[in-house]
Design a protein around this nucleic acid. Structure first.
Lengths: 235, 235
DNA sequence: CGAAAGCAAGAGCACTGCTCTCTTTGGTCA
DNA sequence: TGACCAAAGAGAGCAGTGCTCTTGCTTTCG
């Protein structure tokens, strides 16, 4: 079904063309933006007529999905690579490494970042069965940090249940699904830190801060990281 | 220049048409999204041929600008109205009111929220001279809260300069331009809270959290507000 | 009253996503 | 080797888009 057979020359050529489409699509995504991503333009750059591209990609939306998965993979790889260079017991360092790696990737690939974490593309819904897997890699790494820190007793947060009770139940369900021992407050603070991290990144990538109010935006990001570390009780 | 003369019937008709265009544009923005906003479709709904709309709006980008300004104004009004119902001395309450009002507006107008705080529309740059004014109302209110709280001695943050020195200088410049007495750390935490708030909102509005993992997302937002209050030292 | 300005309409250009048909090419198998 | 079939590419075509230009008509004002 996947036509992943690389034995025949034809299959290899097809795979190469698929890679070219994604590569050119990423280029257009970076220069034109997601909404202006044009299958016809990709076809031109590929030296093909527009209808021929439909032999490889069913629709513009499927091209977007390919780029979404590609982006999640690249980001996930970058985060994993950064985490390998950090001491496992340094929980704040792991959190900072995730943040810095994500920021570096986001600044290098703002268009893909916008595609993954910005406003949803109108009329396009990422198919869950293909994107949730790669899409949850980063938050998964974050959860690992908090869980490890909690089990190591390095988290300065109490384990009292949060109010209202339905909220505590929801958090309990999340805890159960992910197999965590972290208490309500840490799960909630973890969700906060996750959202806050991407809020900081979106502001920077999308230029929500003034244009040149800061000499080096990295300084502000480091301050943000300190606030994040504190928010999850890793101070 | 603005043709705001309401004396002649023609000017009044023109103004009415402009309002209709913004109203219909907002409707399309809500249902189709910013990137799919079509001047031709607006013209159809208006009962005009597409070229006639260009008598009123110079381009699609200018229509976007109208909607941007309209959105900032509406959000600013909502925040101001919410703040009127809060005791001035209740700094955490003011912060929470700003957050809740912004959230309510964002959930009611997700497309406009995406236009203002989501990924930038490719090829469109909001003209600073028309959007910075209304666009800074909310963050201005936030800054007021922190400044008032600092002057009232209600902020639990030290006033040591932050590192590196260039970052402290940048923060000093911001402090001077806004006429603040808040120290480095509070300014930095304020920026963090600002970005974090919109990160939480973007995750909720754009559906970055799982679809139905929470009984009532407002519970999580209240937890986020508590974290924000703590982050700026208003605990 | 007549000139000037404003308004609407329509045609047209270049672009988009996508479908359809047609022809060529490549791989397989008798 | 030759036949056959599926994959790949080409091209035309449909409906939509932003935007420009010209052509008339109407309102306003000197």
């Amino acid at each position: 079904m996947d036509a992943m057979d690389t034995s025949t020359p034809r299959a290899r050529a097809r795979e190469q063309t698929m890679r070219d489409i994604v590569r050119i699509g990423r280029g257009h995504l970076a220069t034109e933006g997601a909404a202006a991503l044009s299958l016809r333009a990709v076809a031109r750059d590929l030296g093909l007529v527009s209808s021929a591209v439909y032999r490889y990609v069913a629709s513009r939306d499927e091209l977007l999905t390919l780029l979404v998965v590609d982006g999640y993979d690249e980001l996930g790889d970058a985060v994993d690579a950064a985490l390998e260079r950090v001491d496992t017991a340094d929980f704040a360092g792991r959190l900072a490494a995730i943040g810095r790696a994500t920021r570096a990737w986001a600044l290098a690939e703002p268009a893909t970042y916008a595609l993954l974490f910005g406003s949803p593309v109108p009329g396009y819904e990422a198919p869950a069965e293909r994107t949730t897997g790669p899409g949850t890699r980063v938050v998964g790494r974050l959860v690992e940090v908090w869980e490890d820190a909690w089990q190591a007793g390095a988290v300065d947060l109490d384990d009292a249940p949060l109010t209202p009770r339905r909220f505590s139940r929801d958090l309990g369900r999340i805890r159960r699904e992910l197999g965590l021992s972290a208490p309500d407050r840490l799960v909630a603070r973890g969700l906060f830190a996750w959202a806050a991290l991407f809020g900081c990144l979106s502001f920077e990538v999308f230029g929500q801060y003034g244009a040149d109010t800061l000499t080096d935006p990295a300084d502000l990001f480091e301050a943000h990281l300190a606030a994040l570390v504190e928010a999850v009780g890793l101070a």
